[in-house]
């Protein structure tokens, strides 16, 4: 490597402070890591690291509590929004967020997330949609696409028998308590940058007490999709984007005025 040590260089990017130095257990190329990194970068930039409490879900993201340098609590399967409600009501000055996958939030936890959003709890939810249950071996989830082969739908998801995928962002955007509900993706550099901005806006929504905020992130699962990390990102673009269009599903006028 030819590094010109005699010329001064400045750091353009480095691992965020809030991201714990330990190695994550995520598979190579899994965008869970990207989402963690974005949350850590945003909390670093907001100076909220010492003031944040995270609520971890069940699924691959169950170990999220190991990967951030702030306090975390672990909720029962699907109950992260309920637990976060309690934390936030007792400690209203803290920044409270949940980090949940689709097997947690969109299936067993659908009741809790709808309740928290309809009550307008001052929470931020980072929702990872990778169309399957990653941790347990890639079974069909509520977000699995029509025709998608998983370990529990070996002939592809049949919508006549197993129903249609749940479009969580669209669903929650209909609730009055929700202030900021958007869908972003992590499949290329441009979208990662947009996702970071959305996460920042979601945390600012909470900080300014404007209501419930949720960022749905289309994510990859290279291992369970049986694809290379680069192919998995292409799969997100080709297969997921048509069913899960990116966009701002609910931005209240007060949130729209936030400068991020």
């Amino acid at each position: 490597m030819t590094v010109m040590t005699d010329i001064p260089a400045k750091i353009v990017y480095q691992r965020p402070e809030a991201f714990d130095p330990r190695v994550t257990h995520y598979c190579p190329g899994c965008t869970h890591g990207t989402a963690h990194r974005l949350v850590a970068e945003v909390l670093d930039e907001m100076g909220e690291v010492g003031n944040t409490i995270g609520v971890a879900s069940v699924g691959c993201s169950v170990f999220a509590y190991n990967y951030f340098k702030f306090d975390f609590v672990e909720a029962a399967h699907g109950r992260a929004p309920a637990m976060a409600t309690g934390v936030k009501r007792l400690l209203p000055e803290r920044t409270v967020f949940t980090y949940q996958g689709d097997g947690d939030l969109a299936s067993i936890g659908m009741g809790e997330i709808v309740g928290a959003a309809s009550r307008g709890e001052l929470l931020t939810v980072v929702f990872i949609n990778n169309t399957n249950y990653g941790m347990t071996g890639g079974q069909m989830a509520p977000t699995t696409l029509p025709g998608q082969v998983t370990t529990s739908s070996p002939t592809g998801r049949d919508v006549a028998r197993q129903g249609h995928p749940i479009q969580t962002a669209e669903l929650l955007a209909t609730l009055e308590g929700a202030a900021y509900v958007v869908r972003r993706s992590l499949h290329n550099v441009r979208e990662v940058r947009r996702a970071k901005k959305a996460i920042r806006t979601a945390f600012e929504t909470q900080k300014h007490k404007l209501g419930f905020s949720l960022v749905e992130l289309l994510s990859t699962c290279p291992t369970n999709w049986r694809l290379s990390p680069a192919e998995a990102r292409d799969w997100v673009e080709e297969r997921m984007l048509p069913y899960f269009p990116l966009g701002d599903y609910k931005v209240t006028p007060a949130v729209a005025e936030l400068k991020v």
Partner: peptide, 16 residues
């Protein structure tokens, strides 16, 4: 590269 890295393994420097 650092934006796409899921594991925040990359530190980027730019010469003055």
């Amino acid at each position: 590269c650092a934006v796409s890295c899921p594991d925040a393994a990359i530190t980027v420097y730019r010469y003055e």
